[in-house]
Structure formats: C-alpha cells, structure tokens
Nucleic acid binder design. Structure first.
Lengths: 137, 137
DNA sequence: ATACTATTGATAATGATTATCAATAACATA
DNA sequence: TATGTTATTGATAATCATTATCAATAGTAT
C-alpha cells in the first residue's frame, strides 16, 4: 500500500488577501468585519470562505484570535508576536497593549498541566470612550 | 415629581441556588451545565432563567465569567477572588491556576486607557488528558 | 488533455444566547 | 387581609455567530 503524502495547504488568493488585510493595521476585527474589508477587493468572496480561512490561517500560525468578554464574537489579529490586548467595554474595540516591563508571567507548574501559552486581556474603558464620557459631566 | 427609588434586586430562590451550585466546588460550568445542576433541586427551572440569572449574578459581583478559545461557550465561576485559569484544549475543561509568585501583572498606563482589571488564561493540555495520551504511545 | 484533489461560493443547519410575553410571586400600602 | 404595583419566572420564539453540506470551480500532477 502506498501512503499518500498529504498535500501542503496552499495560500490561495482568498487566503492571502485575508492575511494582507489583517496585516495592514493593528486592528482586531470580527469575521464579519474581515468579510467587509476583503469584499472590497474580492467582491464575490463568501462569508463561509472567510470563516474557513480565518481558521486555516490560525491553525497554521499566520494569525491569532482573541476571545474576550465584552467582544461579542471572536476577534482576529494578523500579528503573532507576543503582545497583550485591551478590551473596551463601552465601544467593544480591542487595542494592542504594548509590553510593560513586568508582564512576563511565570507559569505555575505545580498543577501538572502542560502549558503551551497564555494570554492576558485587560478590561476597562478606552482612551476615546473616556474622552466622550467626560463631555457629559 | 417624585423619583421612584429603584428597588434593590432580590436574591430569589432560583438565584441563590444557582449561586450555591457554583460555590460548591471550584468548577467552571457552561450555562447548560449549570442548568443541569440546578434542575436537580428545582426541576421546573427554565434555561432562560439560568442565563438571565447568571448575567444578574455576574453584574452584581457574585460570580465571574471566563471566555477562552477552546471553551466553546462562556464559563461561570462562583469564586471572585483574584485567580487565574487554565484551559485544556483536549477536554475543554477549565481549571483554576493557583497564584504563582510573579503573576502580578503591572498595567502599562502609557496607552491612556482606564484598566479596571485583567485576566490571564493559560492554554495547553491538562494533567488528566496528558496521562491518557501517554497510554497510546 | 486528463484525472485527481483542494478550495470556493451559496446556502442550509446548528447551537448558544437573547427577547417576548403571559402567568406568578413578592412586596408595599391601605 | 385585600389590593395595586413591580419584579421574576417559565415557556417558547427569535436572533446571531459559526459550522456543515455540496455542487461548481480552480489548481496541480501526470
């Protein structure tokens, strides 16, 4: 019996353009928002393709995803360098948080679990929403 | 004009029992799992009441919630002391992580956001699933 | 050119969560 | 204790994000 070598997954035009859009700015869009962005360049692209390919890009290490409480759905991030996120409970936006000196978390190994990675999400009110709120005081 | 004093929200029987179940053990169940647990004591309780009251308990500080990538839905935690979580990508369970010395994260204030709190989620494979995997090697 | 596999677009299906609403329970006041 | 008022509940419908299905198309290898 001949074992078929699993064919390497290609970076199709749809996949490249999704990736490009995510790498344009340090934004953290939902799948729906990615669809909106990508449709400007590929008007016929289906939302299913967006979901499928976001998953593909993620499991192949091209992008990462963020789940937080005040985001109502999953967010995607085209930058995979180690950094943290801030989630605004007013406008639901997710911002990058630049590394602060002491946010290197030491993993507690006593529990016996195999820890592959970790993420920190900061919650609060973003700069812009803070400013808006002040106008009403 | 007379301003009505907003009536304090009561801790009804349904709410107390949901809270009790969450405080029995350091578990992190989904809304559906909470429903299952509570139905043993209140067989007529509706799933809508579970969702409504989990939200109520959370926004009144009785419980907290956890959103992570490999959990497919929101988890609830009856313990609100500051602690972190580990999420197993194999069995989808969420475990408590006891505090390690250096997991006090200093918040970067340069961004200008108002940070109310933060959470750390560790991802990997839990002790139990690790053991199971070894059996097949 | 031909055969084969991966990918896509369109759309249906699923699953979690939220909204609606009539019935009930709790509370305050007479 | 009866009565009016508001909050809460249970049942169920509706919504929204995500996933599955499947025929058509594109890409690759021979």
């Amino acid at each position: 019996m001949i074992l078929k070598v699993p064919q390497g997954k290609r970076l199709t035009k749809q996949r490249s353009i999704i990736l490009e859009e995510l790498k344009k700015n340090r934004i953290h869009p939902t799948a729906l928002e990615v669809h909106k962005l990508v449709k400007k360049r590929l008007p016929k692209i289906s939302l299913a393709t967006i979901y499928r390919n976001l998953k593909f890009l993620q499991s192949n290490g091209y992008i990462m995803s963020i789940n937080c409480e005040s985001c109502n759905s999953e967010r995607f991030d085209g930058f995979t360098d180690h950094h943290q996120h801030f989630s605004c409970k007013v406008c639901q936006k997710v911002y990058d948080m630049n590394k602060s000196k002491s946010d290197e978390v030491k993993v507690n190994k006593k529990e016996g679990h195999q820890v592959d990675d970790y993420q920190i999400i900061f919650n609060g009110i973003c700069k812009i929403c803070l400013k808006k709120e002040k106008q009403y005081i």
